[in-house]
Design a protein around this nucleic acid. Structure first.
Length: 429
RNA sequence: GCCCAGGUAGUGUAGUGGCCUAUCAUGACGGCCUGUCACGCCGUCGACACGGAUUCGAAUUCCGUCCUGGGCGCCA
């Protein structure tokens, strides 16, 4: 029976393992193999004079990264990694690896991102890279569990759509039989329509597509968004849900992924609630003081300003009360001060993680807002229709999973947080 | 879209006009080696993105093409 490698201890009598040949050290009369599976690494030690000839022959023909099956008694040896090693009485090559390898799995020689993505399956064999994706899985599990525990309904909305969600971002056009279609940039319109459906609390974790020709360490053309929408809630209510979720995710990872965090060398600090809230005006004030700039009300907060504010804050924080003008049409303006909206961004000191708002739920105001953005209400008819037959007030946000992971694990490039990233230049593998 | 920087063995690098039939490491192959843990030692193999130009001479300068990384704008 196959044993996961981490289950082998110095007390184990006998073990059968299947894994990849991580390293080979041939000392002549004695050969050490390190064999790796997803749980760990174990040393397989072959004294030439003490193992069967068939084992010797198989071991001689094996290459690095081949898949092997090894059976033998386990010996407690203080000098061996993990204090134990297997002396094989069976050694079978299950699948031979070609040589040379496209990149060094052991990590003696670094590889550039591009080389790594060309052979991503090999790259991900490296424990520290694999750790990112085991943690990513834990993040999604924690977020999903948190939302279920709060009574949310998991929804799936279409990725093939007929119209843009908002004016700004570029869409990928698609040949869809005789019609023109696009890949969706956000589930925004659909989750709002499900408020009209009376679902009250929904979430979706799924891909979003942005055809922006940006080339940065924090943008992808296909990203994963965690979207939430809640009826009878305002922006403050959903900000609380968001910070609770962030903390729950960090706690889950800190509790259950200690080994993976160690693989990455990350010392995870759990953010403290409540996250500070600063207004947009305070934010540009901080930026102006730090950079000697002259941002004024209505200007976008650029990268340099964002960085300066992040440094001043030093932890997760919200920027609230944005100018209505620079937020999407669906953000609800304050009734008494319509120039600002009940919109917020969740920021990590390094970058924006999420943005959200209380939404406009009044049909006439929504039409007005759409027009004010220079868009045509006619192309949003399928969406506007949902606002004419009893639409509850509602609020929500969208959170970038890759950015959450990138900031949590201090990754240098957002592509590190995706198994098979899609950027300006890469569509394979 | 605008701007900047790059493309040298399988991988990562050194090399700014002749000292380069190109450095170092890793790797592969062969040899020696019974406690390695980036094992060690000896030997062998393997590369200047492509096209053009300048020059007595180009990996190195110039032009073009292709490819890549990054910054900005915008955003998750």
């Amino acid at each position: 029976m196959r044993l996961p490698i981490h289950a082998i201890t110095p007390e184990t009598d006998y073990a059968e393992i299947v894994g990849w040949v991580h390293e080979v050290r041939d000392l002549g009369g004695l050969t050490f193999f390190l064999v790796r599976d997803r749980t760990g690494i174990v040393q397989v030690t072959m004294p030439k004079k003490k193992v069967p000839p068939a084992v010797l022959e198989a071991a001689h023909g094996v290459s690095r990264e081949s898949v092997v099956r090894v059976k033998g008694p386990v010996k407690a040896i203080a000098k061996a990694p993990g204090g134990r090693e297997i002396v094989p009485d069976e050694f079978e090559i299950v699948s031979i690896a070609e040589s040379p390898l496209p990149l060094d799995v052991v990590g003696k020689v670094p590889a550039e991102l591009d080389t790594r993505f060309d052979a991503r399956f090999l790259d991900v064999r490296r424990p520290r890279i694999r750790a990112i994706f085991f943690i990513r899985s834990a993040v999604i599990q924690a977020a999903t569990g948190f939302l279920y525990s709060r009574g949310f309904v998991n929804i799936t909305t279409p990725k093939v759509v007929a119209a843009a969600t908002e004016g700004g971002t570029e869409l990928f056009p698609l040949a869809y039989f005789e019609k023109e279609a696009f890949l969706n940039q956000s589930p925004q319109l659909y989750k709002q329509m499900l408020m009209a459906a009376g679902f009250e609390k929904v979430f979706e974790i799924g891909p979003i597509f942005r055809a922006e020709e940006h080339n940065t360490v924090r943008h992808l053309n296909e990203a994963t968004s965690l979207d939430v929408e809640v009826s009878f809630a305002d922006h403050n209510d959903v900000m609380e849900i968001l910070e609770d979720l962030i903390v729950a995710v960090y706690e889950h990872v800190a509790d259950l992924c200690q080994d993976r965090l160690a693989d990455l060398g990350v010392d995870l600090k759990i953010p403290e609630r409540p996250f500070p809230r600063i207004t947009y005006e305070e934010a540009i004030g901080i930026a102006n003081r730090a950079l000697g700039g002259n941002l004024s009300f209505g200007d976008d907060i650029g990268t340099a300003a964002e960085k300066a504010i992040g440094e001043a804050m030093g932890e997760h924080y919200f920027i609230v009360d944005w100018p209505t003008e620079i937020k999407p049409y669906y953000a609800m303006p304050y009734p008494d001060r319509p120039e600002i909206a009940k919109a917020f961004d969740l920021m990590h000191p390094r970058m924006e993680l999420s943005s959200g708002a209380q939404r406009v739920h009044r049909h006439d105001l929504l039409v007005e807002r759409i027009r004010a953005k220079g868009l045509s209400p006619e192309s949003f008819e399928f969406y506007l229709k949902a606002f004419r037959y009893g639409m509850p007030p509602h609020a929500g946000w969208g959170l970038g999973i890759e950015r959450l992971l990138m900031t949590m694990l201090d990754l240098g490039n957002i592509r590190e947080a995706v198994l098979f990233p899609r950027d300006r230049h890469r569509i394979t593998p």
